[in-house]
């Protein structure tokens, strides 16, 4: 198995970089969100013929993140899950559950200070 390594990119470059990957026929595997103190790390994972490519962005809680749904339609579930669990917000989602995909009311349970 290959070694894990990622590239940190700026929030503004995200969509252009992902578009390039889409043109090279990469498949979107996952978006993993981690809370690091007050900031959030989002790890985007793509796959082409079983080799992985990772992109990482670091955002603050109130920054709206551009949604990937304009490039990969299926990203809406991954992004809605992050909206639910961490209370982040994605701009221009094609199907927006508004933080109620998993919970009956908006309540980001995965934040570190929230039980």
């Amino acid at each position: 198995m290959e070694k894990f390594s990622y590239k940190i990119i700026n929030l503004q470059d995200l969509l252009t970089q992902v578009k390039e990957l889409r043109e090279k026929k990469y498949r979107l595997v996952s978006i993993s969100c981690t809370q690091v103190e007050e900031k959030f790390e989002l790890l985007y994972t793509f796959d082409l013929n079983l080799s992985l490519k990772h992109l990482k962005i670091i955002v603050a809680k109130d920054t709206p993140i551009p949604s990937l749904t304009c490039i990969y339609e299926g990203a809406f579930l991954l992004e809605n899950e992050i909206q639910d669990q961490f209370g982040l917000s994605f701009a221009k989602l094609n199907i927006d559950y508004k933080g109620q995909l998993f919970y009956p009311e908006k309540n980001p349970l995965f934040l570190k200070n929230n039980k």
Binding site: V29, S30, S32, T34, Q35, E73, L77, L78
Partner: peptide, 16 residues
Amino acid sequence: LDRLRIRTPTFANVPA
């Protein structure tokens, strides 16, 4: 662990 994230196969198949 600090974070464990699991992306399961059905989760990926739902958009399809």
